[in-house]
Amino acid sequence: MSESRLLLIVEDDTAFARTLCRSFERRAYTVLHAESLEAAEEILGSHAPQFAVVDLKLNGNASGLACVQMLHQQVPAMQIVVLTGFASIATAVEAVKLGACQYLAKPSNTDDIEAAFGHVAGVTDLELTNRPTSIKTLEWERIHEVLVESEFNISEAARRLGMHRRTLARKLSKQRVK
């Protein structure tokens, strides 16, 4: 098997993973799929992919951040893109610290992901805005930060935030967490 365009997709949503796999195969990638951290680790036992797409939230409240860390430790040259519907500044920063080259919010398509693989170095000519952050955005980012710190344990995150577990669950249900 050619390892030069080998891509690992770590995604627990079977339908979305199948779509991504087909799309990348049409672009001449050899695609491997894992539904969990353990399955990804098993694949790394026999393959060394150059690219990976990792969902931030995996089955059983498993963190894609742990997967990013493991992939980066096993294959440091791997270009890892984190895909999520659970986007926040805190998780984006953590993903990059742990070894991801890019962080994309869903919905992202194959073009977006492939472009992210090509923009590893970063861009310095982005327009800086002078728009203040809203209270709702700050609250949402703080909730995400605490969720990451508590390894996505809602009860523990609610305790750290000083709110009732049901209140936090209601806030999370208003935003699609995937």
Rank of each mutant, 00 (worst) to 15 (best):
H144L: 12
A158P: 09
L98D: 01
V81C: 04
T91M: 05
E35C: 08
I143E: 06
H164C: 10
Q102L: 00
D12M: 07
R176A: 13
K136M: 11
A90Q: 07
E38T: 11
P76I: 04
V53A: 05
C101P: 00
S2Q: 08
E114Q: 08
Q50L: 09
I143P: 03
Q74I: 06
I9S: 01
A115P: 00
S23W: 10
S23M: 11
K136N: 10
K97Q: 11
V96H: 06
V68M: 05
A169K: 15
L71S: 01
S46L: 09
R170C: 12
D111Y: 05
D111K: 04
L104K: 03
Q73K: 11
L8N: 02
V93L: 13
G60F: 07
N153P: 03
R22Y: 08
L6F: 00
A62S: 12
C21D: 13
L7K: 05
V10L: 04
I135S: 10
C67T: 15
G122F: 05
V96E: 00
H164R: 15
L37G: 09
A62M: 07
I113K: 01
G162V: 10
K97G: 05
A17W: 00
A52Q: 01
C101K: 02
G99H: 03
I89V: 15
E41T: 08
A116Q: 02
Q73D: 10
V81T: 03
R166M: 12
S108Q: 03
A62Y: 05
R27A: 11
L98S: 03
A77Y: 03
K136C: 10
E151Q: 12
F86S: 07
L98N: 02
A116C: 06
A40Q: 04
L128R: 14
L7D: 02
A87S: 15
G118W: 00
P132F: 07
E149Q: 14
E25V: 10
L161M: 09
H47K: 13
L128T: 14
H47W: 09
Q175F: 14
E139K: 09
S36T: 14
I135P: 09
E42F: 11
A39R: 04
N59D: 15
S36V: 06
F86I: 02
F16D: 14
H144P: 07
T129P: 00
R165S: 15
